[in-house]
Design a protein around this nucleic acid. Structure first.
Lengths: 221, 221
DNA sequence: TAGATTGTTAATCGATTAACAATC
DNA sequence: TAGATTGTTAATCGATTAACAATC
């Protein structure tokens, strides 16, 4: 895999969606698909699908379309799902527990290798077979285990300090669940899950829809 | 509030971020801010901030900038945070519990009015004071309580059926945590939280970064 | 071979940035 | 008033869509 032009984030964000749809096709034993057919299922243009895929290579065949299994595997590889990324969850509260129990991640090649917290009530308990360990042991743990990803589920106030601590320990990526933008003086890749942002966008759309309806009514009178 | 041109989703998705930054400014008693200053804090252009805000109205003042509290409240109102939206959580597993316990939502004007599940172990238990009720009682509950939003935290297979059931009961919006795109023959606004998509994007970025570094090394030799 | 469908170039559309007159 | 900064128009940039030659 040589130098390849930087792919835009818009394209990258669509890849997991392709991956899901291809997975669904495999489940119902569809072995080939054209960009046209896929575009109809996904509600996007065939052109966009072909453009997106061609950022990474020519996975299709003229006159035939795409082999579903092949394309599925290729996208999986592009998404780094074969890398066996190891993760630690920091914060074993509700969200940390929910994530630890989420089957999908392991299925996608992300392994939870450790769970940390400071609450004495939680230390020593097991979540999905993994013992919750005290944060004091974090450095020790990360020295002897190769960890790629830190999953941040700690309270808002603690988040910046914990993020920095993980960065100093050489973490490569952070999956951040706190409603803030992390700024770190390290080469760390940050992916945010801003749940309340998402909820507010829903709030906006509900509002917009309500007004649209009201305006329609007013037009009639 | 009259007819206003449809605002692009790109702009809408930035609103919660503005809202967060303004909230932070308020916390440290900053009462006014220019688009320039805000742009530096947020890492975007001042031009974009002004363009974004002017989709909704002229909230600033020439020579002065923006009044933080006023702008904060305006954006809150645009996001529908004054609407006192009522929500039900469907699925009281880890994710449902995590969301029920998440303080931020109530603070943003979203109220959890009910939690439903089918697991006899869970029925009758209380989460943040709200009793987990059996799904059989959902129709009854929604007839006597005005509910705007359904929060879907049920297993993958159940999701489409539950979504349809809520839609039939007149739900206005769905906040979907299953890794699938809901298609409903109703006027329901859907906002997805695709956690595994987000994780895969992180996987992609880690991959990309690794290759970038490798290429740099190869260039040197 | 003829038909189908890709990969890719060109055209269009939309979003971001720059510039500046309006105005506090 | 002079200085600052907005609101808004114009220019640029990037992403999406359309078109079609290449080719299976």
């Amino acid at each position: 895999m040589g130098l390849r032009k930087k792919v835009s984030l818009a394209v990258v964000k669509r890849l997991p969606r392709y991956y899901r749809y291809l997975s669904d096709l495999l489940k119902v034993d569809i072995t080939r698909i054209s960009s046209k057919e896929l575009s109809m299922r996904m509600g996007i243009t065939a052109s966009q699908i072909r453009q997106d895929l061609n950022c990474f290579g020519g996975f299709g065949q003229q006159g035939y379309g795409y082999n579903v299994e092949y394309l599925y595997k290729e996208i999986g590889s592009i998404l780094g799902l074969n890398n066996n990324y190891q993760a630690v969850i920091i914060g074993a509260g509700n969200m940390g527990q929910a994530l630890a129990n989420y089957e999908n991640f392991e299925k996608r090649g992300f392994k939870i290798a450790g769970i940390f917290d400071v609450d004495p009530e939680l230390i020593g308990t097991r979540i999905k077979g993994i013992e919750v360990t005290h944060m004091d042991k974090l450095e020790e743990f990360m020295q002897k285990t190769k960890i790629d990803i830190g999953i941040l589920c700690v309270p808002y106030e603690q988040t910046p300090a914990v993020a920095e601590r993980l960065a100093r320990l050489g973490i490569k990526g952070l999956w951040n669940f706190s409603p803030m933008d992390l700024k770190l003086p390290y080469d760390v890749i940050i992916e945010n899950v801003h749940l309340s942002d998402s909820l507010m966008v829903l709030g906006y759309k509900l509002n917009e829809y309500k007004e649209m309806k009201k305006n329609k009514k007013e037009q009639k009178t």
